[in-house]
Amino acid sequence: MIRYLAKRLGYYAALLIVAIFLAYALSCTALGPRTYFEAKQPRPSAASVDRQLTALNINDHTPVVERFGKWSKDLVLHADLGRTIHNTSVNAEFGRRIVVSLRLLLIGSLLGMLLGVAGGAWSAVRQYRISDRTLTLVSFVLLSTPVFLLALLLKNGAIAAKDAVGHEVIPFTGYETPGLSGGIGAHLADWGLHLLLPTLSLALGGLAMYSRYQRGTMLDVLGSDYLRTAEAKGLTRNRALLKHGLRTAIIPMSTMFAYSFLGIFTGATFTESIFGWHGMGEWFIQAINEQDINSVVAVNLFAAVVVLASGFLADVLHAALDPRVRS
């Protein structure tokens, strides 16, 4: 098992390097920081623009490969992601935002996954009953609702609630109440409340999608011979389902967890801007507008690491559930 996972890890590392280089090259060709500097008032001299660009390692007159070499050397040797176009540290910005985004992404995707698996399995066991049909309907509605619409609806709901009651019931901007006093408990509660709506906007989509797939795999398992064997040897239906059914039904899902993470990441970009979270997604959009190559690459790095890490976790899960892949 260790060997298998080590092999997968090596494979992901190679993929990561390729992905980063492509992201870097793409950002360099698509973005034009030179125009950003040239548009400054008063207009700086060509030599001064060149100097500033070179200092930031984003001069388009330097070959991309050379720039990438310097960038990756700084990254590997000094863990330095370079400077933003405003000549501030990318690292500092990265550190601030990653805490915000990870909180949202991790909780949102895990919640969607768990609820989706549970809901799908439950739905399969109760196939064609009212509860199954209801969940199916709700999933389809959710699946056809884009994340930004869902987020807006949730936010508007919260606003409506505030207007009706007269004060804020569920917070819908930012990730904490500024200047909140009180102990750690009060802070945690505050965080939790702020997380509620953005997390929901991400988790509901996941729930809908995972539950559909999980229902399908579970239905296959429900008709399987081995489940019947498990019952024939004396397990009650529920125990047989839990022990022999659910585990086999989750295996095909593990691959899905990895690849759907990208969608959740994209969705988070909308969620962040709608709920006023200063996270990675918001930064990404801002950086593109400012032609800020180093910041864009940093966000790309984050996304690539997150996606590949979730792929690796999915492999671990798969190997843990299905001993056949280990050998």
Binding site: D225, A230, A232, K233, G234, L235, P323
Partner: peptide, 22 residues
């Protein structure tokens, strides 16, 4: 359930699918 496997036990046709694969 208390009778199945204890008093009456079954052998099924297709032995590949009759064992839980994992």
């Amino acid at each position: 359930s208390a009778i199945r496997g204890r008093k009456v036990a079954m052998v099924f046709q297709d032995p590949l699918s009759a064992f839980t694969p994992v």
